[in-house]
């Protein structure tokens, strides 16, 4: 992957690349040339009527949120997926729902794929929606409307024994201005999951979380971006999270 600086062309390319890598068979027939065209494509791909019932869906059950820990555990969950699960989840754009719930109260009734060591968060799937329907019926959508507050930068180590390549150290930037805690989870989850599936993040890697109001003017060399509609300008794109090249 070639490193790139942040620019509006990079935002558009990033968003288009994401569609191409998740659904290569569709990408040729889609217009990915502008932010507006991308938005139309996304609406078509994620619309409730078009989402097939067998689309892979991950479920995150959150009791208490500690963002650095959650980043770590999200990577651990994605790293442990079987090849078939990885493939299916990538094709569904790493679709994930976030629910409020207490993993310790649910473990006897539901089989989780991964549970954080302190029982603060648990993951189920990714699997066709029917497999997690009972769990989703029991719980409620995770609500965290507060704006994400900037925290001191923190470095976490991705769990697991390093594989063939030596552990890397990258920075993980997160936008906070007008981004709710729930919004930040969505952005980080997609970025981290897709970075793991693409092999950018591996066991033993270190990630330094940096909180900034907006990623504008980020001088760092970037490896992966999370792009969505701009909080101020609905026709433009904004980077909400970014993973840098090795530091």
């Amino acid at each position: 992957m070639t490193p790139f600086p942040l620019s509006s062309a990079a935002l558009l390319k990033s968003a288009a690349d994401r569609v191409r890598s998740a659904r290569p068979e569709l990408a040729d027939g889609l217009d990915l040339s502008s932010a507006q065209a991308l938005r139309t494509v996304r609406a078509g791909l994620h619309g409730p009527r078009t989402a097939p019932a067998d689309e892979a869906l991950a479920v995150v059950v959150i009791r208490r949120l500690d963002l650095p820990r959650w980043v770590c555990e999200t990577c651990a969950f994605a790293l442990a997926l079987a090849p078939g699960e990885r493939e299916a989840w990538r094709r569904s754009f790493t679709r994930t729902v976030y629910l409020a719930g207490s993993p310790a109260n649910l473990r006897e009734r539901f089989a989780f794929a991964h549970v954080a060591g302190d029982d603060s968060v648990a993951w189920a799937g990714p699997a066709p929606g029917a497999e997690t329907a009972a769990l989703r019926r029991l719980l409620k959508a995770f609500e965290a409307a507060h704006e994400l507050t900037a925290q001191r930068s923190a470095t976490v180590t991705v769990p697991g024994r390093p594989g063939t390549r030596p552990p890397a150290h990258r920075e993980l930037y997160i936008a906070t201005a007008r981004v709710s805690v729930t919004g930040a989870l969505v952005h980080l989850n997609h970025l981290l999951a897709e970075a793991v599936l693409d092999g950018l993040i591996g066991p033993g890697d270190r990630l330094t979380l940096r909180f900034v109001p907006r990623l504008t003017g980020l001088g760092a060399q970037l490896a992966l971006l999370r792009v969505d509609t701009d909080v101020h300008r609905p026709d433009e794109l904004q980077a909400y999270a970014a993973l840098t090249t090795e530091v």
Binding site: A100, N105, E108
Partner: peptide, 24 residues
């Protein structure tokens, strides 16, 4: 252990009887 309090991140308070299979 019957409550799930998520006010610290701007969430609600839930009565949590999920361990008995009852909805949040």
């Amino acid at each position: 252990g019957l409550v799930l309090d998520q006010r610290q991140c701007g969430g609600p308070v839930y009565l949590d009887l999920t361990r008995y299979g009852m909805p949040l």
